[in-house]
Amino acid sequence: MARTIVITSGKGGVGKTTTSASFAMGLAKNGHKTAVIDFDVGLRNLDLILGCERRVVYDFVNVINQEANLNQALIRDKRCDNLYVLPASQTRDKDALTQEGVGKVIDELREDFDYIICDSPAGIERGAMLAMYYADDAIIVTNPEVSSVRDSDRMLGILASKSRRSEQNEEPISEYLLLTRYDPARVKRGDMLSVEDVQEILSMDLLGVIPESQDILNASNSGDPVILMEKTNAAQAYRDVVERYLGEEIPQRFINQKGFLGRLFGG
């Protein structure tokens, strides 16, 4: 049975697309056939983060408008055969996505894929609402910072009332907290909200913590999802996240400040 997962946050710039790219690649590398959809119509970027920007021919809106079929629009990743990308369109038409059209595309993907990852745009406009509407699970990407935490809480309220599952009185969407750009040293100094603080405020299950890392910028520069930069902390953190999502019990890492030796030899 396929599962649809939305990566959302409310606030922009917290790491939704970075997470979508690495999470989707991680699932695919674990042997699951995975499709990742960019819902940010007008401002597509997932293609760039995954390094397939020059292979975009048709997009999500073309498929909805039946100007292309799904197989024509899906881009197969060159590094992993199990991963497919459905890019967003660059149209400025805000109404390009329709609930019915998105539903049809997701239904068609569900027949063929194990996981469908919906990369939500920031905000609570149509693209963001539709990215979450058909979700079974939601990963709430949050930075340990006041505006991000507040927006995450707001998204939890919307997930609970404006999704297909809530409207049809089905079991609610499972919500997972992913804390990104975490800096244990600043937490220790009392300058940054801790994992426990954010969990307590949002009362959510923690899926993982991604440490603040220079490698994320390097990864996006080269168009490789950071999970493929195997030796880096960020990649290890994302791999843990994928395995935890798949049901493995993996202890949390990267939430404590590194010791002297760790700092000397670590990335």
Partner: peptide
């Protein structure tokens, strides 16, 4: 003083 900025944030958010 330094240790308080995160706790102030937590309290405001709660």
């Amino acid at each position: 003083r330094r240790a308080s900025s995160a706790s102030v944030a937590k309290e405001r958010l709660q």
